[in-house]
Amino acid sequence: MAPEKDREAALRDRENVRVVVRVRPLSDKEIQAGYKSLVATDDRNCSIHVTNPSAAEGEPPKVFTFDSVFGEDSKQVDVYNLAARPIVENVLEGYNGTIFAYGQTGTGKTFTMEGVRSIPEKKGIIPNSFAHIFGHIAKAEEDKKFLVRVSYLEIYNEEVRDLLRQDQSVRLEVKERPDVGVYVKDLLTHVVHNADEMDKIMTLGNKNRMYLKMLHIQNIIC
């Protein structure tokens, strides 16, 4: 492939929206209640097979295909490396990137995104991205300067709150400008210098959050 086509393919890859599905195992409570899993994953074909318990005999399961799928035994590091690492790498090259977890209550969003931060192998996407970002910065050439700023907001009942603001009664507005696009007016940003500082900010914000959360990391290379 010609260099110009290589660049075009890389740009298209950065602009893609990718949908990844992770299937959590049954909880102890579900197992005790006698529930059975009706979902199977096909890693090779990136598909989910859903069996209808009321289906007629011989009826095949419904098959849904995604960009990637992770089964019940998937590990946090594998989810990060395949689903999140390429996005963070692109951010470090100057592109915008968003990782968004969606699902019903109890489906495992918090475990996938945050995990158990005190246990390395159980850390989720967010703490793993902290280590990734500052690991990249530590290996960068000396003539490159990095400025990392972090904000933490929550959208709940169509209201936007800054989880790092001392006054949690303040409601923010979503605005749009031709030069910057969509942004949240008066959202505070904090400059951080290492992964530990980001982790402390996350802990502070978690004390103020309700349900839906979004972590936005700004990276500027000078």
Rank of each mutant, 00 (worst) to 15 (best):
A2S: 15
P3E: 06
R7N: 11
A9S: 14
V20T: 14
R22G: 14
S27V: 09
S27K: 13
Q32G: 03
R44Y: 07
N45C: 11
H49N: 14
V50P: 11
V50G: 04
P53C: 05
P53S: 09
K62E: 12
V63S: 12
T65N: 12
S68P: 02
G71L: 00
E72M: 04
Q76S: 01
V77P: 10
A84S: 11
R85L: 10
P86D: 05
V88L: 11
V88T: 10
L92T: 00
G97W: 01
T98L: 01
A101E: 05
G103A: 09
G103C: 04
G106R: 10
T107C: 12
T110I: 09
F111H: 06
E114C: 14
E114W: 06
I119T: 14
I119C: 15
E121H: 05
P127F: 00
H132E: 09
I133W: 00
G135A: 06
A138F: 07
A138C: 06
K144N: 07
K145S: 11
R149T: 11
V150A: 13
N157P: 01
L163M: 03
R165T: 02
Q166W: 10
S169Y: 07
S169H: 08
V170R: 09
E173K: 06
K175D: 00
L187I: 12
V192L: 14
D199N: 14
K200R: 10
M202W: 03
T203F: 03
T203G: 00
M210D: 15
M210V: 15
Y211S: 06
